[in-house]
């Protein structure tokens, strides 16, 4: 792969993701004020002393945005990595072993997917205590159903190839078949899928926080910041839109990269459709 072959749209996406990651990692060093430090008037306008204005309690919006990047990205990433590992592991085991285990996993997965993710999350979060790790776990488990489905389809595509059969006939174990034969051939679509899941996680976490069921205050996270400032909208105060835009931009950036990865995958397969 050559750098020059990466289209402009993907470069924009990569740059955006890099910026968000930079903010997340170095938040305490680049944020002008503290995360929940009250520094001024309520909802002071953009520009002037506070670049993006202040929020409903008089906290600096830019600082909260930078700290919010940290929370949002950390939680979404943790959930995605967890859901990905879980979904991949189970789907590959199902695809390679087949038979009863495959049936069992797949039917249970169908059942999980029969309830819309958000509704499922609402029901579960209504019952469980509010902890960060529970939130991450719930997001991961719910999302792993999607990963499982894609993973199984991709792994089955490869698992029926004759080189996998050849490895079986040689007497190779399940571990070798999964990690040496199948996994290297599924990396490209899976990378795209990881991006998709990450984008989804960010949106999902933000939605939950917006509904008051995600990250709990006073910690800053983008969805929660929209919730905090939503009452200002009627008065024409756009503070709620700033974190909303941050979510949108980061998700767009991720989707731009994913779009490119998917096109790349399909051209590798030699398909002439770019669907």
């Amino acid at each position: 792969m050559r750098l020059r072959a990466i289209p402009l749209s993907a470069w924009i996406g990569i740059a955006g993701i890099a910026l968000a990651l930079f903010c997340a990692i170095f938040a305490p060093f680049i944020a002008p004020h503290g995360e929940s430090e009250i520094v001024g008037e309520i909802w002071s306008p953009m520009g002037g002393e506070f670049l993006l204005g202040t929020d409903n309690l008089g906290r600096d919006l830019l600082s909260r945005l930078i700290f919010g990047a940290r929370t949002t990205i950390f939680v979404a990433l943790a959930a995605t990595i967890l859901s990905f590992s879980l979904g991949m592991l189970l789907s590959f085991i199902a695809a390679v072993t087949g038979g009863l285990i495959d049936q069992l996993f797949s039917r249970f997965n169908d059942l999980m997917m029969a309830i819309p993710t958000l509704i499922f999350a609402l029901v579960v979060l209504a019952v469980l205590p509010q902890h960060l790790w529970i939130l991450i776990l719930v997001m991961a488990v719910l999302d792993s159903t999607r990963v499982y489905r894609i993973g199984r389809a991709v792994a089955l595509d490869v698992a029926v190839m004759e080189f996998v059969e050849a490895a079986r006939l040689r007497g190779e174990g399940t571990g070798w078949i999964i990690f040496r034969e199948i996994l290297p051939n599924t990396l490209s679509p899976l990378l795209a899928e990881f991006g998709l899941r990450f984008a989804f996680s960010i949106l999902f976490l933000s939605t939950l926080s917006f509904l008051g069921l995600g990250i709990q205050p006073p910690a800053a996270d983008w969805g929660g910041m929209v919730k905090d400032n939503k009452d200002g909208i009627i008065f024409g105060i756009s503070a709620a839109l700033v974190p909303g835009a941050a979510i949108a931009l980061l998700t767009i950036c991720i989707n731009l990269v994913v779009d490119w990865l998917m096109k790349r995958t399909s051209s590798l397969k030699g398909g002439r459709g770019d669907a």
Binding site: M161, E162, F163, E181, P184
Partner: peptide, 8 residues
């Protein structure tokens, strides 16, 4: 032979 060998 295409599908009989791991392309990676």
């Amino acid at each position: 032979a295409d599908t009989a060998m791991n392309p990676r």
